[in-house]
Design a protein around this nucleic acid. Structure first.
Lengths: 202, 202
DNA sequence: TAGGTCATGTACCGATTGGTACACTCACGA
DNA sequence: TCGTGAGTGTACCAATCGGTACATGACCTA
């Protein structure tokens, strides 16, 4: 008798070469899910697309549910990388930072990832267990740096929070518009209008 | 032999008492879907919840796909009713209209319907056939009245379009924030800030 | 009363799902 | 050289899915 499955603590912490393989699979899975959506994900189709049997996905992650958790986390990490990369460019005016952020978010190559973001957002609102944990960080995490920038630019704390919240919401709303209409020019013009209102004259 | 199913042109136009029953079922289905989400909808569970067998859902709608189409349409109609009800109150200042719209959209009793809206939005972005048709109207339909209001308030055509687009995006973005955080006070404050920027001083 | 239509329930079908059992290969250490 | 254990493929399982076949009963009309 050589049933290894029962002995192996599946879905365990990621250490050793095992973790490498897991990380590699998660990465491929996020790519797949960004392209095809997470709602109708099936282990068999995912496996076929990234070159493993659905058997191995269960082997490495223990269950579909835990794979979904990892996918959501990895996707969140990608989103966060975008944010932290921005903070590494100091000395820019708030307007310039805003324009840069907007430019990066609307990069057509990120469209799949953005769609996935809103899809996970929706699943979290519906209480899907793998997505719920992101709910608290979904707004707060982005609010902090925006708020700090406002305060650094001289806004009082209360106004800073309101303005940060407004900027985040407007960005996400316009991103939704862009994904739906594809009207890059029109949406960019609306964002320009916002920045004009937001930061004064020009 | 009395097989009526083959004779009956299923999923046909809604005329007669048949249509009443269909409309009633769709209405109940939208309620159910607003509460439980549309992604994992199963005919059996839906039927059990609204008091019919899944057999009857197939009977009245022909297929799950066509039922989904009807659900999306009905949900869209509800959303549109909200919009048209606003247009029936003339003589209000743009700010007042905006506040009224915001107040109605954020009514807690509409939370399920709003979640459903964003869920369908996501499915449309993913190309789900029952949701795709709404994509073109998703932005344009709401833009028209907002744009008209801007022009009536004296904005030039180009600015009017940009401002309308911006207002719609901001509203939806803040709505997403509210659904995720439930922080009514904070989101309302951000909306106030926006209206201040948008319509001038106070 | 007889015939026919519609509404509904029961029971089934094939397909697909997540998950499991088990055998096999290969690398590596004693 | 042997054996142990991880990595993997094949084949299966029960559950659930959308959809269909068929029977039954209510109701209307001739």
């Amino acid at each position: 008798m050589v049933n290894t499955d029962d002995v192996h603590p599946e879905g365990e912490a990621a250490h050793g070469a095992d973790g490498d393989r897991r990380a590699q699979l998660v990465d491929a899975a996020v790519d797949y899910v960004a392209a095809h959506g997470i709602a109708d994900l099936s282990l068999r189709r995912l496996g076929a697309a990234i070159g493993v049997s659905h058997r191995m996905l269960i082997h490495y992650f223990g269950s579909k549910e835990r794979l979904l958790v990892e996918i959501v986390r990895a996707s969140e990490r990608r989103q966060r990388d975008l944010l932290s990369r921005l903070r590494l460019t100091p000395g820019l005016s708030p307007v310039a930072v805003a324009r840069l952020l907007w430019q990066q978010l609307t990069d057509p190559r990120l469209a799949g990832q953005e769609r996935l973001f809103f899809e996970i957002y929706g699943r979290a609102l519906r209480g899907h267990p793998e997505a719920v944990p992101i709910l608290e960080r979904l707004v707060a995490d982005w609010l902090e740096p925006l708020e700090a920038a406002e305060i650094a630019a001289g806004a009082d704390p209360i106004a800073a929070r309101n303005r940060a919240r407004l900027g985040l919401a407007t960005t996400r709303g316009l991103l939704l518009d862009l994904l739906a209409t594809g009207d890059r020019v029109g949406v960019d013009a609306a964002m320009d209008e916002f920045l004009r209102l937001y930061y004064g004259s020009k």
